[in-house]
Design a protein around this nucleic acid. Sequence first.
DNA 1: ATGTTATTGAACATCATGTTGACTTTATCA
DNA 2: TGATAAAGTCAACATGATGTTCAATAACAT
Lengths: 193, 193
Amino acid sequence: MDQSNGMLPKKEDRRVRRTKKLLTQALTRLLQEKQISEITVRELTDLADMNRGTFYLYYRDIFDMLEKIEDSMFEALDDIVSLHQNDDVSRQAKPILLDLFRFIEENQEICSVLLSPHGDMNFLHRLNQVVREKCLQLWPNKEEEKDSSFEYHYSFVVYGCVGVFRAWLNGKCQEPAEKMAELADAMIRRGSL
Amino acid sequence: MDQSNGMLPKKEDRRVRRTKKLLTQALTRLLQEKQISEITVRELTDLADMNRGTFYLYYRDIFDMLEKIEDSMFEALDDIVSLHQNDDVSRQAKPILLDLFRFIEENQEICSVLLSPHGDMNFLHRLNQVVREKCLQLWPNKEEEKDSSFEYHYSFVVYGCVGVFRAWLNGKCQEPAEKMAELADAMIRRGSL
DNA sequence: ATGTTATTGAACATCATGTTGACTTTATCA
DNA sequence: TGATAAAGTCAACATGATGTTCAATAACAT
């Protein structure tokens, strides 16, 4: 999960990295306390201890900034998904789930904020779409299962897992990622009762 | 799902009902297009065709307004949950699920918006808490199941159902509520694979 | 050391906000 | 129906955030 906006061939200036990092830290901290819409550019740059104008060198507004942060999250998530391209998820979902739980653990602060009450619904929907596309890639053959209930099944699983992520983050990721992956896999496969 | 802010003994003035209804319609419509934070009081009252000052007679700001709308949603949800107090959800979840799907169908616009990319994470969390309390009431005895995985199970189910709600609303609630309740019940009970 | 680039600080017009007061319209209830 | 209370309108105001600018300074890369 790098903070850069794209895959620039040349690495960014050290000052730019510093600026974006400070802004991201400040935003993460503010989002723990209030809605994104209540956050002003002024208080963000004050907290990051920099000039207000500097913010506008990189972001159009605070929503644009959050979106760019989410972009870098999805780049990292895409990498994880790519590693498990050949997994037969319908038999074994644990491996990819384990990597996901580990990723979340490594990025607790920002993940916690994105899924918090002050978080972003759009993030959930982008997540849902990513999984949807992956599922369609993995099971392009099963024509008989392509009834409408397909949409409901993956939505149920994706959002269900998000719920588990939330609960896990809420408890500061106490349980080991391995145990969580096993639990999630069991609920997907055998239900929750 | 009434629009009143509380349990006022006296019914509100007709003008007040009209004003709040117009504002709610305008907000619902605007939330289909943009984030709540991008909505100004001016454009809201312009769309509702009323004076800007009138808004401030009832709401502190637009977030306050959304919160009050959500409050009335939860009142309606509480009523539904109360009707199923004696249900043994672990055996039969269909009845309460059916009522929930019907409620969503009857309030498509606002539900669709609340769960959309422009929706509200806080709404999900309030929903999660409501279900959590109900679950704790219903199974106060099963001590052996009160390990940490309890938190994960109901979170999985609640968020999973939200995902199904989302998908259903996305397709304009084509499938009958009965079928959806059955499907959701099956996924909760027997998993999604 | 030098040229380049990022950051600063100040200034600016613009717009949304939240509140006020006098005025008009509408609802309620006797 | 008509009196009275309440809701809504309109205009105005101070305040503060916004987004942009420009010259000056600081930090960087080589």
